[in-house]
Amino acid sequence: MILIIVGILIVVLVLYVIVSYNALVREKNKVKTNWAQIDVVLKRRADLIPNLVETVKGYAKHEKETLDSVMEARNTYMNASIPSEQMEAAGELTQALNKIMAISEAYPDLKANTNFVSLQNELTQTEDKISFARQFYNDSVYSYTNKLEMFPSSIIASLFHFERFDYFEINENDKEIPEVKF
């Protein structure tokens, strides 16, 4: 009789470990998938930037420094290989794009250019998608982190060496309004 009870307890424990492990893997994969969605949208934004810069160049020839900083920020993002580098580069790219949008305010002909308006609308839609993707990513990191930290799944997480993911946070520079001088 004791052997049967011990056997049942072992089976229950093994089943619990399997269920907990699978739940952690599911949450980890959700985080990775949501990061991939951010990456796709950030890549789309990076692809739009050269067209936007070329359009602005035709109207704002003396804004070379700003346009160069936008392209430099884009290239930094494209060369980033790990999520933390990509997060940082995405913030720099956002700042650079804010500057280019501020430049457009000083050039009425540029604001009226259909190419520029179309690119600006595409970029605005892409920025909205980035915001949503960041929110989904951070929600999945939150859920995964809870599984890592809550008892008893925290025991399974530490046994199988599940690692944390960073939240996608904006840096302090992104909170500032870009300064554009003419």
Rank of each mutant, 00 (worst) to 15 (best):
N51Y: 06
V53Q: 13
E54V: 02
T55L: 10
G58F: 04
Y59F: 14
Y59W: 13
A60V: 02
A60I: 05
E63F: 01
E63A: 06
K64N: 12
L67I: 11
D68P: 03
S69T: 15
M71W: 03
E72P: 00
E72W: 05
N75K: 13
T76W: 08
M78G: 12
M78Y: 10
N79P: 05
S84R: 13
E88N: 14
A89L: 14
E92L: 09
A96F: 11
N98R: 14
N98D: 14
I100R: 01
I100H: 06
I100W: 01
I100G: 08
M101P: 02
I103R: 01
S104T: 03
S104L: 04
D109F: 06
D109V: 05
A112I: 02
N115C: 02
F116W: 03
S118T: 10
Q120N: 12
N121S: 13
N121E: 15
Q125R: 03
T126D: 07
E127P: 02
E127S: 08
E127Y: 03
D128I: 07
A133P: 03
Q135N: 11
Q135V: 01
Q135Y: 04
N138E: 02
D139S: 04
S143A: 10
Y144L: 00
L148P: 12
E149T: 07
M150C: 04
M150D: 02
F151N: 05
F151A: 04
P152S: 07
S153W: 01
S154G: 05
